[in-house]
Design a protein around this nucleic acid. Structure first.
Lengths: 230, 230
DNA sequence: TCAAAAGTGTTCTCCCTACACCCATGG
DNA sequence: CCATGGGTGTAGGGAGAACACTTTTGA
């Protein structure tokens, strides 16, 4: 028997999922990349991903790959684009369904491929394998768009955080600067944040108020849709 | 030789494109559907679409299908989601890359399948084949989201139109009502519209000003990004 | 004593909103 | 003369933007 045992009347492309993993280190937006160990593009960095199995959805596949390669379980992922250029993989025709993931950088333990995985600040990413440069640009743009409709900080910040953390996150994603007081007013306005009774000493200079997200409000907003202006 | 001549080491899904075609009749948002002539779901309505060929991108495939089935050439299309449920097609595993198209209803001539094609108001669409009900819901939601970042009217209105046409379009897409004067002010604000020296008599009651889109501004906005608040 | 970080309020401006009357036409 | 549709302006409120000083601590 031939090793090629799955036969079709018409040619079929291979289907993979790729996952752009965003994290936030407190001041900059970061992306998790994996160094390729095989040709093509051996030695180049790329997004974790792999072939879609026949009994799983693309979302399940992306989550499976994510877990295998970062140890993350049940991360927040969102599909944003499918790439289909016939020549995007030099070996054969491969289309890839691209997701982005928002994870807490602290929680990434590293999986089987940990040795080859590394965080890069978003503006210091080297040239990537395949069409992953383009995928990264698109993922970043989609993230910027969706931040207007979803309180994305939920997924990138620890459970408790300071107002400054939140502001740094928005500034990192949108690449803008805000006035501290105006930003706090705007964020407090929609009742999505809860001011906790706790404080921390983020620097040895001064005590800072801690906040958490209001999960009830968040779910309500996910239902009804909402909008934050920037 | 077997008729199944394309063989792979691992199973591959089939890949199709489907296209949700939106049009605007002057008062309501409409969708173009095609009645299926074969099983499964024979007699049900579905979006035009078909198998991706090995030498074309998904976008090219969607445009090809669109032309074959509606006669439309070079329509505005945008990919919005890929559907991968293993059971979404009862025959075999098929994933579909979904696009929406924005077209001028007047320009749809009907192609080979014209006899089986029909426009439906968006809120009077019957139960569709496969998972197309869900695809339609998603397409509508994405359209509503993207209208905040793109002046979608460009593609749905004729070259010259009245302010009322534009308002009806936004009201149909967003399912809201606007004040006539406030709407006009808002739209004139960003210089995207050009007030023409022409008028028409949309009803026999009163003459109405004609407008056109400012293509230079439009391209500038596409570069820099922009936002319309509603 | 100086630098760094956080807490705090007010003013101004602009945009959005709500709202009403007039005019021209066809029936 | 009446119904329909389109054209036009204003006043008020609310949110965003700009802006400075104080306090605490460690170095």
């Amino acid at each position: 028997m031939s090793e090629n045992q799955y036969c079709y009347k018409y040619p079929h492309p291979s289907v993979t999922t790729d996952c752009v993993i965003f994290g936030f280190d407190g001041s900059r937006l970061q992306v998790l990349l994996i160094e390729r160990g095989i040709e093509p593009y051996k030695g180049r960095w790329a997004f974790p991903g792999g072939f879609l199995q026949m009994d799983e959805t693309a979302e399940q596949g992306a989550l499976r790959e994510l877990k295998e390669e970062t140890g993350l379980d049940g991360a927040y992922i969102e599909q944003f684009q499918t790439y289909t250029d016939p020549d995007r993989d030099p070996r054969e025709r491969v289309i890839t369904i691209a997701y982005y993931a928002l994870v807490r950088i602290q929680e990434v333990q590293g999986g089987d491929d940990a040795a080859r995985a590394q965080w890069f600040p978003i503006d210091e990413v080297p040239q990537l394998a395949f069409d992953h440069d383009r995928i990264l640009r698109d993922a970043t743009r989609k993230l910027r768009e969706r931040i207007h409709f979803k309180p994305i900080g939920f997924e990138l910040l620890p459970e408790k955080f300071t107002m400054k953390d939140l502001q740094m996150l928005y500034e990192a994603i949108l690449d803008v600067k805000f006035d501290r007081r105006n930003f706090a007013k705007k964020m407090m306005h929609n009742e999505l944040l809860i001011q906790l009774d706790e404080t921390i000493w983020p620097t040895p200079k001064r005590e800072a108020q801690l906040y958490a997200f209001n999960k009830v409000k968040y779910n309500e907003f996910k239902q009804k849709g909402f909008q934050i202006e920037f």
